[in-house]
Design a protein around this nucleic acid. Structure first.
Length: 217
DNA sequence: ATCCCGAGGG
DNA sequence: CCCTCTGGAT
């Protein structure tokens, strides 16, 4: 079962795979991605309308009251750090980039609160630049389907996926892995009985590996 | 108790 | 590499 077969199968399963964060601009998307750390897109979509109503532009957010920002996103996890980060990030967008979000990976990751994964999502989702963001879903699916080794770091997983998948299909593959991980091959209670990839799945070995690693502590 | 489209700091 | 920050859903 090679990668191209798996991707075509995933396309059949999820013909409508797409980014589920709500946004109307580059600014809104970047902030939404930063906020999505360790929470669900659904939770982010609940707080962003009020946040962007109060702070419609990078300048407004940069000049915004930190307590007000915290209150707007308080229902998300890590809200303290996130509020500080999006305010600082908005300041750079306003001061340095004239209110626009830069597209280069280097410039993106230099923004406060923007790491490798956030920058990659921005590139693939907004600028249509080939990238392979590795989040919790992509990492889990890659290890279960054998695209990466259990102990691989997210950067190693990213490198291996980029090598196995044609560059022109990175963005599509990323989105398909997300949907597969979110709605089918979940961390808990995945739908193994209906899974077309059961014969190659390393889920059980992966679980055993994780238990063993945990026991070491 | 574990997981959710992580990043920054040590 | 590790740890911490953090609330809501399951």
């Amino acid at each position: 079962m090679d990668v191209s077969f798996i991707l075509s199968k995933l396309q059949q399963m999820f013909p409508d795979a797409h980014c589920e964060l709500n946004y109307t601009s580059d600014y809104e998307l970047l902030i939404a991605i930063i906020l999505s750390a360790q929470t669900t897109d659904k939770a982010v979509n609940k707080v962003t309308p009020a946040l962007f109503h109060h702070f419609p532009t990078p300048r407004a957010l940069a000049d915004g009251d930190l307590k007000r920002i915290e209150k707007d996103i308080a229902r998300l996890g890590l809200y303290h750090a996130k509020a500080k980060n999006i305010k600082a990030c908005a300041k750079v967008l306003a001061d340095v980039y004239d209110g626009n979000v830069p597209s280069s990976f280097k410039k993106l990751t230099e923004l406060p609160g923007v790491g490798r994964k956030t920058a990659s999502v921005m590139q693939t989702e907004y600028f249509d630049i080939p990238a392979m963001p590795v989040d919790t879903h992509v990492e889990r699916i890659s290890k279960r389907l054998g695209f990466a080794k259990f102990g691989d770091s997210v950067e190693t997983v990213e490198r291996k996926l980029k090598r196995k998948i044609p560059r022109s299909e990175w963005n599509m593959a990323h989105q398909l892995f997300i949907f597969f991980g979110r709605y089918f091959c979940m961390a808990r209670n995945p739908k193994c009985e209906e899974c077309p990839f059961l014969s190659i799945c390393k889920k059980d070995k992966f679980e055993a590996y994780k238990r063993k690693e945990k026991a070491k502590q």
